[in-house]
């Protein structure tokens, strides 16, 4: 019995599909990570057109006030288990837009991310290695950060 469970857990961690969602300029490097030189499909990542089939949500950099409800809604639409990857300085503390009040400075306090990838924008290699970190986390069976807390439950979306 144990073996069967192991296999499915392994399968889950090895096949990460991401919801197609762009919030900021980091998505440009995310596109490059899909491209021929970095080709993240080698590792089994695949973009899907709808959140219903996705396993991870990528916050690609900045999140504006107007965008936040859409982001949370997308997250809520995803099936369990779901993880969040945050790209770039913006998703951590607002990055270069720290002074701009149209941008939310702490999106990951609202929707906690499992892995942060540093950079502005992070290089494609870094994005892929960030995804690999999520795999490790899943293999260890650590529950996703957003399921443990975060302001997102209290917000309307």
């Amino acid at each position: 019995m144990l073996r069967v469970f192991d296999f499915f857990a392994h399968a889950k961690s090895e096949s990460l599909w991401m919801a197609h969602f762009c919030t900021g300029c980091c998505s440009l490097e995310m596109a490059a990570a899909m491209g021929p030189r970095y080709d993240w499909e080698r590792y089994g990542f695949l973009p899907t057109p709808t959140p219903r089939q996705a396993d991870i949500l990528i916050i690609t950099g900045l999140v504006t006030k107007k965008m936040l409800p859409a982001l949370l809604r997308t997250y809520a639409q995803m099936p369990e288990p779901k993880y969040v990857l945050a790209l770039g300085a913006c998703s951590f503390d607002g990055g270069p837009y720290n002074d701009s009040l149209a941008v939310i400075k702490n999106p990951t306090e609202i929707l906690p991310a499992d892995v942060f990838v540093a950079g502005c924008p992070p290089k494609p290699e870094a994005i892929i290695s960030g995804m690999e970190e999520i795999k490790k986390k899943m293999k260890k069976g650590i529950p996703s950060a957003a399921s443990q807390g975060g302001l997102w439950r209290e917000m309307k979306f």
């Binding site: 889950k12 090895e14 096949s15 089994g44 695949l46 369990e80 288990p81």
Partner: peptide
């Protein structure tokens, strides 16, 4: 094995 993993994952994921 990739697609095997993909499909088995779908089998065990939450169906909304």
């Amino acid at each position: 094995f990739q697609t095997l993993f993909d499909l088995s994952k779908l089998l065990t994921k939450e169906s909304i």
